[in-house]
Amino acid sequence: MTVSLITGGNKGIGYETARQLLALGHQVYIGARDAGRGAKAAAELGARFVQLDVTDDASVSSALATIDAAEGRLDVLVHNAGVLETALDGPAALRSFDTNAVGIVRVTEAALPLLRKSSHANVVTVSSSAGSFWAVTNPERPEFGLPLALYSASKSAATMLTVHYAKAQPGIRFNAVEPGPTATDMTAAFGIGRPVEQSARVVVGMATLDASGPTGTFQDETGPLPW
């Protein structure tokens, strides 16, 4: 059975990704900062829950230790936890990067020993084309008009981290995805997006790559994106 961990898996794209991976027969661990919400989501889905705050080293270590004790390995890691700050100041910048970029480092470093025990490890970063220089400078793209400097910059960092991990860990596939504009709590203020089922399929597709799959890429559902 494939063992999968999804950070921020108690709602939105993370929750739906968990549901789809469960349907494929995965043993899914939902990582969530809020224990009550995370446990409720896991119970609804038939998944397992680990308390995991990507901004807290002790929380991350404890979550991966729990998975290690129960499973002895990790096959799929989905970096889904994220925040979208609309303010532009120091505290908002720190929150953005701590969750969207530094959190990837915390969780990946804690997970690497377990990922190395897998025969087909896949790491997927839910990134964003809002972090693509090509997209935000292209007047024909919707990202051109999004005033989300901190979200965009932190997602650029998330994609770059993913590429560097792919180079440093050739035995593990690391890929970043743009899941598509999705109607979630995070995007509610913008009134945009499609159903989470469609966007989660993009994540699931990358999470279930076989040994011939790519690594070190940034893609959406149509293929590699310039960035």
Rank of each mutant, 00 (worst) to 15 (best):
G9K: 04
I13Y: 05
I13Q: 06
Y15T: 01
A18F: 06
L21S: 01
A23G: 03
I30R: 15
D34R: 03
A41S: 12
A42G: 05
E44I: 09
G46V: 11
A47T: 04
F49N: 04
L52H: 07
V54M: 14
D57N: 08
S59W: 15
S61R: 13
S62M: 09
A70W: 09
E71F: 09
D75Q: 02
V76I: 10
L77W: 10
L77M: 12
L84V: 02
L88K: 05
L88C: 08
D89C: 12
F97L: 00
D98E: 10
A101Q: 00
I104C: 00
V107A: 05
T108Q: 04
T108M: 14
A111G: 08
L112H: 04
L115V: 03
R116E: 14
S119A: 10
S119G: 13
A121T: 08
T125G: 03
T125A: 11
S128Y: 05
S132A: 11
F133D: 07
E140C: 00
F144A: 07
L146W: 13
P147A: 14
L148F: 13
L150V: 08
S154W: 01
A157V: 01
M160S: 04
T162S: 10
A166L: 11
A168M: 10
R173C: 01
N175L: 05
V177A: 14
E178L: 12
P179M: 06
A189Q: 07
I192E: 00
R194C: 00
R201A: 12
V202M: 05
V202Y: 04
V202P: 07
V203D: 01
V204N: 01
S212P: 07
T215I: 09
G216V: 08
F218Y: 15
T222G: 11
P224K: 02
W227M: 14
W227P: 11
